[in-house]
Design a protein around this nucleic acid. Structure first.
Lengths: 183, 183
DNA sequence: GGATTTTTGTACCGCTTGGTACACAGGATA
DNA sequence: TATCCTGTGTACCAAGCGGTACAAAAATCC
């Protein structure tokens, strides 16, 4: 997972992957069948792990607090602060840099990642709508637009982190981003 | 440029590049010397072209209007609306998807792109500081943080566009983003 | 028009890629 | 102890990669 995360789908070579896994190629093929299948498994694991973080943030009492803490967590994670998950040292978000562009061989993978990012946005939107139902978010705001806004900003955080941005600067930017919250 | 833009540095193969250029490999090597040099030239051209758009936006009377129109232009360009530049059909931003992650061979290229993104952010900041000097931006705002915020959001727009987001949705998100503007 | 220089096209180089065939070793079963 | 079965290691495959040598052709120059 870390190798795919750091190098992307096409950039991660089989030797690099098998070396990191501590097995050799035939074993990997016997266990996963394919490089693409292995990548999907890695993405699954990544989503699962970051899903815990996501749920923890979403559990905050109000939608605004939920998203605010999520942003903070993302900044921390994307800048290499892996925490207990053991994923320390890898910058950025696997769903973003796993396969943004590439040759003909990675089309399915790109679509898969785009779908995963879309899922995250949908869950963001659900949390906002729940906030509206519970009364802590104004009813007249466009939940879809607000969710897309924060999803977009999160993707931007991933790019910034991949480019080596400092966590402190990104936290300031995230604080600015929260100013767009509807009153 | 379009091939690198669409497929990324490592994903663009020499046959694809030379075919798009209408020349064959030795001619390309005679003219540019290298795949990496060719990529740098393509990035240069890309920055030059998008620099016109950038300058046009920055010329608006106030910093807020400048950034607002820039966001609108970016949404349009990133969703394939190439306009007169002839770069239509390619989604996303070359500085983002050109090389976000990759193998050992693309490290220099990644750093170059990160530097270019950083330059854009710096110019954003300069425009904000100019707005402060001219009185249309509050003096107590952190220009650096505000610039990083918008740069981050722009990077996010590129990711969204690469993933196939619709221009109308991104425009709504951009409108939300402008709500973070300091009063 | 003939000589020269530049451009083009073809074929090749070594290397790495993702993927596999197959012989070998270790542990459980009988 | 003999047998099976699972898993590993080595060696290999075809295909693609970036990069280049070299001959044919085209354009230039005198």
């Amino acid at each position: 997972m870390r190798v795919f995360w750091r190098q992307g789908y096409e950039g991660a070579s089989l030797p690099a992957l098998t070396k990191a896994m501590g097995i050799n190629r035939p074993s990997m093929y016997a266990a996963f069948g394919n490089k693409e299948s292995l990548f999907k498994k890695a993405v699954e694991r990544y989503v699962e792990k970051s899903g815990e973080m996501f749920r923890a943030a979403m559990a905050r009492p109000t939608a605004r607090e939920a998203i605010e803490t999520l942003l903070r967590m993302i900044v921390c994670a994307a800048c290499g602060g892996g925490g207990a998950g053991g994923a320390a040292g890898v910058r950025g978000c696997m769903l973003v840099q796993g396969a943004l562009a590439g040759g003909r061989g990675s089309e399915r993978v790109r679509r898969e990642l785009a779908q995963r990012r879309c899922d995250m946005e949908a869950r963001l939107r659900e949390r906002i709508e729940r906030g509206q139902a519970e009364g802590d978010v104004r009813r007249d705001v466009d939940a879809g637009a607000l969710a897309k806004y924060f999803a977009t900003f999160q993707n931007g955080l991933a790019v910034q982190a991949a480019g080596g941005a400092r966590a402190a600067d990104l936290e300031k930017a995230a604080a600015v981003a929260m100013r767009a919250w509807p009153e």
